[in-house]
Amino acid sequence: HAATELTPEQAAALKPYDRIVITGRFNAIGDAVSAVSRRADEEGAASFYVVDTSEFGNSGNWRVVADVYKA
Results as ranks from 00 to 15, higher is better:
Ser54Ala: 12
Asp52Ile: 14
Gly44Glu: 04
Asn27Tyr: 09
Ala11Arg: 04
Ile29Glu: 07
Ala3Met: 07
Leu14Glu: 06
Val65Gly: 00
Thr7Asp: 06
Ser34Glu: 14
Glu42Ile: 10
Lys70Pro: 07
Ala11Met: 04
Glu55Thr: 10
Asn61Met: 15
Ile20Ala: 00
Ala32Val: 12
Val36Gly: 00
Gly44Ala: 04
Val33Gln: 05
Arg39Leu: 11
Asp41Tyr: 15
Gly30Asn: 10
Tyr17Asp: 03
Pro16Tyr: 03
Arg38Asp: 05
Ser59Val: 10
Tyr17His: 04
Ala46Leu: 10
Glu55Met: 10
Ala28Asp: 15
Thr4Asp: 06
Thr4His: 13
Tyr69Met: 01
Asn58Gly: 13
Val36Ile: 12
Gly44Pro: 02
Asn61Ala: 10
Gly57Thr: 07
Val50Leu: 09
Gly57Glu: 10
Gly44Lys: 05
Ala2Tyr: 14
Gly24Asp: 03
Lys70Ser: 08
Phe56Tyr: 13
Trp62Cys: 07
Val68Leu: 15
Lys70Glu: 09
Ala12Glu: 08
Leu6Pro: 03
Ser34Arg: 15
Leu14Thr: 06
Phe48Ser: 01
Asp41Gly: 15
Ala13Asp: 10
Val33Ala: 05
Ala2Lys: 14
Ser37Tyr: 03
Ala32Leu: 12
Leu6Lys: 01
Val64Gln: 00
Ile29Tyr: 14
Gly24Phe: 10
Ala35Cys: 09
Gly57Leu: 08
Tyr49Thr: 03
Ala11Gly: 03
Ala12Gly: 08
Phe26Thr: 01
Gln10Lys: 07
Arg39Cys: 11
Trp62Ile: 10
Glu9His: 09
Ile29His: 10
Ala40Gln: 02
Lys70Ala: 11
Ala45Leu: 05
Arg39His: 06
Asp52Glu: 15
Ala2Asp: 07
Val68Cys: 05
Asn27Lys: 12
Ser54Arg: 12
Ser47Glu: 04
Thr4Ser: 09
Gly24Glu: 02
Phe26Gln: 01
Ala3Gln: 02
Ala11Lys: 04
Ser34Val: 13
Val64Leu: 06
Arg63Ala: 07
Ala46Asp: 15
Gly24Asn: 01
Ile20Val: 07
Glu5Leu: 12
Phe48Leu: 00
Ile22Asn: 00
Val65His: 02
Ala32Met: 14
Glu43Tyr: 15
Ala2Arg: 14
Trp62Lys: 04
Thr23His: 11
Ala45Cys: 11
Glu43His: 14
Ala71Asn: 11
Ala11Ile: 03
Val36Lys: 02
Val68Met: 13
